[in-house]
C-alpha cells in the first residue's frame, strides 16, 4: 500500500491519498456467468475534500488509461498517481489563497480549520500535526465513503463503489509527503 500525505500549510492540515492493490470477483457483463472473473486492480481513495466539503468516491484503476479525466495516458504508475494527486489539489482548490479557501470551506461541516492566524506555528508543527490530522481524516473517510456513491460520477468516470474484500493482511506500506 502506498500512502501520499498532502500537507496544506495554510490550514495546517494533512490529507492522505491512499493507493492499494485489490483482488475480487468482478461481474464484467451484467450477470453473464461466463464473464464473472477474478480481477486485480488498484483502489485509490483520498481524504482531500471537494470544494463543497463532500468526499471523493473511490477510484478503481485497471489500466494506465484510468487516470483523471483530461489527463494524458502516462507510461508508468508513478505518472498515474502523480496525476491523481495533481487532480485532487486542482479540483479541490487547495492551493488558492486564504480568502477563497476559507469561503469555500466555511460552507462545509467537515470541520476544516481555517487558520489565518496559525501561519507562524504551522511550519514548526508539521510532524505532530500530520499524525493527528491524518487520524481524524481517516475516521471521517470511513464514515463518509459509503455515502459517496451518489457523488462519484461528478468527480470522474472512473469512480465506483467498492466491491472488494479488505481482509488481507497489512504487511507493508509506504508513505510520502507533499507540501502545498
Amino acid at each position: 500500500m502506498a500512502t501520499i500525505r498532502v500537507y496544506q500549510e495554510e490550514n495546517n492540515t494533512t490529507y492522505q491519498v491512499t493507493v492499494d492493490v485489490f483482488a475480487s470477483v468482478v461481474d464484467k457483463n451484467n450477470g453473464a456467468a461466463s464473464n464473472a472473473d477474478i480481477d486485480y486492480y488498484l483502489k485509490l481513495t483520498t481524504t482531500i475534500p471537494k470544494v463543497d466539503g463532500t468526499r471523493y468516491g473511490e477510484f478503481q484503476i485497471r489500466t494506465l488509461n484510468d487516470g483523471p479525466d483530461g489527463y494524458p495516458t502516462p507510461t508508468t504508475f508513478t505518472g498515474l498517481i502523480n496525476q491523481y494527486v495533481t487532480y485532487f489539489l486542482t479540483a479541490s482548490e487547495l492551493g488558492q489563497s486564504s480568502s477563497s479557501s476559507s469561503s469555500s470551506s466555511s460552507s462545509s461541516s467537515e470541520g476544516i480549520t481555517s487558520s489565518s492566524s496559525s501561519l507562524d506555528s504551522s511550519s514548526s508543527s508539521l510532524d505532530s500535526s500530520s499524525s493527528s490530522s491524518s487520524q481524524s481524516s481517516d475516521s471521517s473517510l470511513s464514515s463518509s465513503s459509503s455515502s459517496q456513491s451518489s457523488n462519484s460520477s461528478s468527480s470522474s468516470s472512473n469512480s465506483s463503489e467498492s466491491s472488494s474484500s479488505s481482509s488481507l493482511d497489512s504487511s507493508s506500506s509506504s508513505s510520502s509527503s507533499f507540501v502545498i
Binding site: 492493490v21 483482488a23 486485480y40 504508475f77 479488505s166 488481507l168 493482511d169 504487511s171
Partner: peptide, 23 residues
Amino acid sequence: MAINVNIYSNANASSRTITFDFV
C-alpha cells in the same frame, strides 16, 4: 495490504505464495 496469489501443487500436496504489493 497486498495481494497474495496462492499456488497449490496437487502432486506435492504443498502450496507457495507470490505477493503483489503496490508501494
